[in-house]
Amino acid sequence: MTAKDALTERYQDLLSVYLKAKTETTLYKGQQFSRKLLEQQISPEDLVSLHIQVMDELFPDMSEEMRDSFDFLLEAMIGYGFAYREHQSLRDKQQQLESEIEVAASMQQTLLLSDVPEFEQLDIGVVSVPAKKMNGDYYNFVKSGNSLSVAVADIIGKGIPAALCMSMIKYAMDSLPEEQMKPHLLLENLNRVVEQNVHSNMFITMFHGVYEPESHKFYYAGAGHEPGFFYHAKEDEFQDLIAKGLVLGVSRTTTYHPYEKMIEVGDMVILLSDGVTECRTSKGFIEREEVVSLIRKYMDLPSQKIVENVFQELDRLQGFELRDDFTLIILKRLV
């Protein structure tokens, strides 16, 4: 018996039971049956033709007008049949597109991921974990000459626009001439690129810094990014690493303030995304001081171990449900 024959038989059973008993239960069974029809991709006009076939079986003496009226109904259903098939093919296409987009976006993200560089004077640790499949946080290390530049950015907006935006930033950064690697100038440049190219609801927060090993100076600037921390080893204290500035993508003419800090042996520069401080627990938000005390707890370990441990503890505090992307970077001066 083919699937179609089985359906016809089932329909005939249901219909004849209903015509005899006319109960709500059998009506409801008819409703359930329609799901089965959809599963088997039976179109509306197919159902009418099935109905005609069954009615012929059940009522061989059906009046000619009645019989003809069904044929008429069948013709009148043709339009619905087209709409149904179109819907199906669109749905298939949409599913295909969605999965292609997902693959493309995650592939791009993998391509954009920056390796954590080996750098003689600095011990570098990085953890960057997305809350959903796509990470809206972005970080990038570039070694240029003797110096090391580091960027952390949070791209507001998800999916394709965010992924495209991320690559725009990466390539804009890679193509800047070396003399413009000064953080505040780099941000001004990027801001112009972003402002022209992103949707009005989107913006990017970014922190950019450059460490120069000869002078042991860290030059930095910020575009609306969550402040990081600076650990001053001599005083054994954590300070906020404040770098004020408007987020990228809001106003074309924004300028950024240059900041610099002397980095001594044992000092740490700690960069983060707002996912770190916007962690929510059952008791409320994690305050910045708590993040600091977690870093303090592990600060004798290598940088990579510090960031991993801090992430694990914060993740546990949130009941292992990240609400926002999480990025934490530590640079510690070794010699």
Partner: peptide
């Protein structure tokens, strides 16, 4: 969160482009 902030950025741009004005008031500390 930042998506919410994005809506205000969009509204700010729109008010500048369309000569309307946008004012915010009564913000909590957070």
């Amino acid at each position: 969160d930042s998506t919410g902030l994005g809506i205000f950025v969009g509204a700010l741009k729109s008010s500048k482009a369309n000569n309307s004005s946008l004012k915010l008031r009564g913000m909590t500390e957070r």
